[in-house]
Nucleic acid binder design. Structure first.
Length: 231
DNA sequence: TCATTAAGTATGC
DNA sequence: GCATACTTAATGA
C-alpha cells in the first residue's frame, strides 16, 4: 500500500482541526480500497469492525424490511464518514452500504474510533455534527413520506440528490451517480411505474432530462414548487 | 390518487 | 441475444 497524501484529509470536517503530524498518524493507520458499482461495503446486522471515509464516488445506504423490501435511506457524498457504528455505540451496522458508483474509501478498524475521538480535538464533535445532519435528513424524509403525496416525494428526492451530489452541467444540475427509477421508487415508497410516469411527464414539461441511469434536473425551481415548497 | 398487472420497447454488455 | 432498464395502458382498490 503506497503512502496516502495528507491533503486527502486536511480540508474534511472531521480532520480539519488536526495538525499535520496528527493527520499523518491517522492516515498511516488507514487502508484504501476501491469498490466497483453495486458492490456491498458492509451489510446490515454484520459485525461493525471498520469505519470508513469516502474519498471518491457515492454510497447508497439501504435497509431491508422484514418482507425483503429494500429502502434507500440516504446517499453519502465524497468527504463524508460512514459506517461509524462505534460513534453510535453499536457493534453491528444498522444498514447496508453499497457503492452507487465506482468508489474509493479509506477504512480503519473500529477500535481506533474512540482513540481518534479522545486524542484529536474536534474529531468527535465534527463527527456528531454530520451524524446530526444525517438524522435531520432522515427525519425530513420520514415526515415527507407520511404527509406528502407521491409526486411531491419523488420531486423532493430528486432535489435532495441534486443538492447533495449535483454537478452543474450545460442544461441543469446533473445527479452525479447512476440512478434508476427502481432506486427512486425505493427512496420514495412507490413503484417503478409511477416514477417512470412522473419522470416522463416532467421531461415533457422541461423540468428534467433523463436517460438510462442518468438524470439532469433542468428546472429546479419548478420542481421545488411541485415538491411543496420546502426542499 | 395510486398500486398492480401485463405487455410491450430500448439499451448496453 | 440476453438481461436490465424503461414505458405505457388497462383495471380496480
Amino acid at each position: 500500500m503506497p503512502k496516502l497524501d495528507e491533503s486527502l484529509l486536511t480540508d474534511l470536517p472531521p480532520f480539519s482541526r488536526l495538525s499535520r503530524p496528527e493527520i499523518r498518524a491517522v492516515l498511516d493507520q488507514a487502508t484504501s480500497r476501491r469498490y466497483p458499482e453495486g458492490r456491498a461495503i458492509f451489510r446490515e446486522g454484520h459485525d461493525a469492525d471498520r469505519f470508513f471515509l469516502l474519498l471518491d464516488g457515492y454510497i447508497r445506504v439501504i435497509r431491508t424490511t422484514a418482507d425483503g423490501e429494500q429502502i434507500i435511506v440516504l446517499h453519502i457524498a465524497p468527504g463524508q464518514l460512514f459506517g461509524i457504528a462505534p460513534a453510535l455505540r453499536r457493534d453491528t451496522y444498522p444498514a447496508t452500504a453499497m457503492a452507487a458508483a465506482e468508489s474509493i474509501a479509506l477504512e480503519w478498524p473500529s477500535r481506533l474510533w474512540h482513540d481518534f475521538a479522545a486524542r484529536h480535538d474536534g474529531f468527535a464533535t465534527e463527527t456528531y455534527k454530520t451524524l446530526g445532519e444525517r438524522l435531520g435528513e432522515i427525519q425530513g424524509t420520514l415526515t415527507e413520506m407520511a404527509t406528502r403525496a407521491v409526486e411531491q416525494r419523488v420531486a423532493g428526492a430528486l432535489l435532495r440528490m441534486a443538492n447533495q451530489s449535483g454537478r452543474k452541467s450545460g442544461d441543469g444540475i446533473e445527479i452525479a451517480f447512476p440512478i434508476t427509477r427502481q432506486n427512486i421508487a425505493e427512496m420514495t415508497g412507490t413503484t417503478v411505474h409511477t416514477v417512470s410516469r412522473l419522470l416522463a411527464a416532467w421531461q415533457k414539461d422541461g423540468m428534467v432530462k433523463s436517460t438510462r441511469k442518468h438524470i439532469v434536473v433542468t428546472d429546479p425551481h419548478r420542481l421545488v414548487l411541485l415538491s411543496g415548497g420546502h426542499g
